[in-house]
Design a protein around this nucleic acid. Structure first.
Length: 328
DNA sequence: TATCCCACGGATCGGCGGTT
DNA sequence: AACCGCCGATCCGTGGGATA
């Protein structure tokens, strides 16, 4: 094989290679015929012939040899054609991806959630998304509402389930209220109060507590509840926002932790965990103020995020109805 | 508005293989 | 050997878009 163009050139884009050149190479690899490649590309045979000649001039490489019955790609031609086929396929894939993105079948959704709602609502919604939108990558950040609100306004979240912090400008948020988040007081399975015949809230106050620090919504709710019951506030409190540390402390010590009922049920064995903690039958009406689906007021959700949001709204309505049934 | 560039199609030519 | 058909290459004219 002889090389008509002795010098190899590097950056083909800079040398002026166009999509049409690559399409032609991809077709030539299939047909080994310029006229057939041209027909497949919906251009005339002379145009295709010119493209082929241009590409050889640009690359400085012999890409094909002429036969009486068509053309045969050289080793370099086959190599370039393989790349071209991959690029053409990539463009086809990109087109399909754009359609899927438009229909919410691809892309990613990042949402925030407070821990209770994450288990009650987000988990079932993720299961549903996996069935209806398997191409969508879902990320869930579990945190307290103050952090979630900041992340939402910084565009790090599509939306979140939680509350709008008191100090925030509410006009920045669009809020769909779901319902209250019932709370329970949790202790380890072998805690002295776990097996006592009659436990009251005042029995709990003397123990260590583990819960959110001062200023957190859950902490304020618990403090207000105890004050309303005419009880003193716990003297020894471990402050943490970590559910994991809270549970570890509860399981290893006699500490008492207020936590979302949904979280407590998981570790209490209601859903097949191992029942290493139990909820005390005190403070049955302890609940944090209603949580909601919160999004930026003036932004459109992406199609995938819209689907996820709709699923959560559905489950939120069912959740609110269940709560109303239990209290009524 | 004039000019340039680009893509395209039609016409034509030359090379080659198959058929008669 | 002559003819025919297929194929790629080239020339030329045309039309559309961008730009000065």
């Amino acid at each position: 094989m002889t090389t008509r163009f002795p010098q190899m050139r590097g950056d083909l884009m800079q040398r002026g290679v166009k999509l049409a050149h690559l399409r032609l190479m991809a077709q030539l690899a299939e047909t080994n015929q310029i006229s057939a490649a041209a027909a497949a590309m919906n251009i005339s045979q002379p145009a295709a012939s010119r493209l082929a000649a241009e590409l050889e001039k640009i690359t400085g490489v012999e890409l094909y040899v002429r036969n009486p019955r068509g053309v045969e790609l050289t080793e370099q031609g086959r190599r370039l054609a393989a790349r071209a086929q991959s690029m053409v396929q990539g463009l086809r894939d990109a087109g399909r991806e754009l359609v899927e993105l438009g229909e919410g079948q691809a892309g990613s959704v990042t949402i925030g959630s407070v821990s209770g709602a994450a288990i009650e609502l987000v988990l079932p919604s993720i299961k549903r998304m996996r069935v209806t939108n398997p191409g969508v990558e879902t990320t869930v950040n579990v945190d307290i509402s103050d952090v979630l609100a900041k992340d939402l306004l910084a565009n790090r979240l599509d939306f979140y389930i939680g509350r709008v912090p008191a100090q925030s400008d509410r006009r920045l948020f669009s809020v769909s209220v779901i319902g209250e988040e019932p709370m329970v007081l949790v202790v380890r399975r072998d805690h002295p109060l776990a097996h006592a015949s009659h436990v009251t809230l005042s029995d709990c106050v003397g123990y260590d507590w583990v819960m959110q620090g001062q200023g957190g919504l859950l902490r304020r709710t618990v403090d207000d509840y105890l004050i309303a019951q005419g009880l003193p506030l716990p003297q020894k409190v471990l402050n943490t926002a970590s559910v994991l540390l809270t549970l570890a402390t509860v399981m290893e010590t006699n500490a008492i932790a207020p936590m979302a009922r949904a979280v407590a049920e998981i570790f209490g064995g209601d859903r097949g965990f191992d029942g290493r903690t139990v909820a005390l039958a005190v403070a049955p009406d302890l609940a944090v103020s209603p949580f909601a689906l919160v999004r930026r007021a003036h932004d459109e959700l992406s199609p995938a995020a819209r689907t996820f949001h709709a699923y959560l709204a559905d489950l939120g309505r069912a959740y609110a109805a269940r709560l109303a049934g239990k209290s009524g």
